[in-house]
Design a protein around this nucleic acid. Structure first.
Lengths: 104, 104
DNA sequence: ATTATATATCGAGTTTTCTCGATATGTCAA
DNA sequence: TTGACATATCGAGAAAACTCGATATATAAT
């Protein structure tokens, strides 16, 4: 986890929104595609299409953003069939908050 | 304090270094210019020239960086004669850590 | 096999950031 | 008031990030 990559990832309103939406997926993605049972689906994250729809940017842009956020360590992904589900990597985010408090 | 401006300010290695150096100015700027009595000087921050020397970038670049960091809220400045001293704005940085914990 | 759907990758034009040297401004000393 | 020094601002070329549409890949359904 390189702090600078994380800060870059957070330097964009859409990406910051995505990270915050994924804190409460049930709230921000209510009509979540029923490709999976609800429990699994929410725990497993939200699929790219749903995120794209809410973020209102092109499909390629959102895919790129999610990849960047994952490389920075903020997100993790699981593939189920043709869908890729992204969710927060809470462990890394916790470390990051700690880094912020002690190193910044 | 806009989080995105802060994250942008932190997205650069030199600026991140400056912020961290200013946590312990005595340690990182030992041969601090004696323009002011030591107590005053360290409390008041470090002057642009000393920061520039350590950061190893041009004078205009460092001046620009410091200004950007101040606008983001991370630093504050005091002018004494021909020198401008920059120091951390600990209050804003504290708020920021809190924002990080609760909102990110 | 073919078609349809979801996501990833590619290529490129646009915008923003980076970084510098040159110059302007402000302050002190002689 | 002139000269020297510290810092700020300006202008611009180079590099990086943004963002899109087009296309490729992977999976599922028929």
């Amino acid at each position: 986890m390189k702090p600078i990559d994380v800060f870059k990832a957070l330097s964009n309103e859409t990406r910051l929104n995505i990270l915050q939406w994924l804190k409460e997926p049930e709230k921000h993605f209510p009509k979540q595609g029923a490709h999976l049972p609800k429990e699994v689906s929410y725990k497993g994250g939200v699929c790219v299409g749903d995120i794209q729809e809410k973020a209102n940017a092109s499909q390629s842009t959102i895919s790129h953003y999610l990849n960047m956020m994952q490389k920075a360590g903020l997100l993790e992904s699981v593939r189920h069939g043709q869908w890729t589900y992204y969710r927060r990597n809470e462990e890394v985010i916790r470390q990051l908050a700690e880094y912020f408090e002690t190193e910044i």
